[in-house]
Amino acid sequence: MTIRYSAPMPAELRHFMRAGQHPARSVPCPHCGVAAHKPCKLRTSGRLLTEPHPQRVSDWAQATACCPQCQVTPETPCHEDGRARTTVHARRYQEAEDTAA
């Protein structure tokens, strides 16, 4: 009998090796309340969704990328004319996707 020992995969590598998942799944979903790395689901029926909710994608972009339009750092919400926006700018989505790739 052969005994195989395998070292646990570091969390940094595991995160990037999840094939076919949207990178926004790395943060919890504020809309449906699922934990990080779990698929979003419908609150009424519990059916799993293939794509994350838009608010989850917005939270992921805010957590990972600087906004080139309003010049804010990660974790800081985008603003427009001195007022905080509820979503991030489109250029911040692009920056987050470029960072994840």
Results as ranks from 00 to 15, higher is better:
T2W: 09
Y5A: 08
Y5M: 11
A7C: 08
P10W: 00
E12Y: 01
E12A: 12
H15L: 14
R18K: 13
R18C: 09
A19C: 14
Q21T: 15
S26H: 05
V27G: 01
V27C: 08
V27P: 00
P28E: 14
C29M: 06
C32E: 03
C32Y: 05
V34C: 09
V34K: 03
A35Y: 05
A35N: 08
A35S: 12
A36Y: 01
A36P: 00
H37Q: 10
H37V: 03
K38Y: 01
L42H: 12
R43Q: 13
R43G: 11
R43Y: 03
T44K: 14
S45G: 03
S45Y: 07
L48Y: 01
E51R: 08
P52G: 01
P54H: 04
Q55T: 05
R56E: 06
R56G: 01
R56Y: 13
V57S: 01
V57T: 06
V57D: 00
V57I: 15
S58A: 14
S58E: 05
D59T: 07
A61Y: 00
A63E: 06
A63W: 02
A65E: 02
C66D: 07
C67S: 02
P68S: 02
C70A: 07
Q71G: 03
V72D: 02
E75V: 04
C78E: 04
C78Q: 02
H79F: 10
D81I: 10
R85C: 12
R85E: 11
T87L: 11
T87G: 07
T87A: 11
A90G: 14
A90C: 10
A90Q: 15
A90F: 12
R91E: 15
R91F: 02
R92K: 11
Y93D: 04
Y93N: 06
A100Y: 04
A100V: 13
A100I: 09
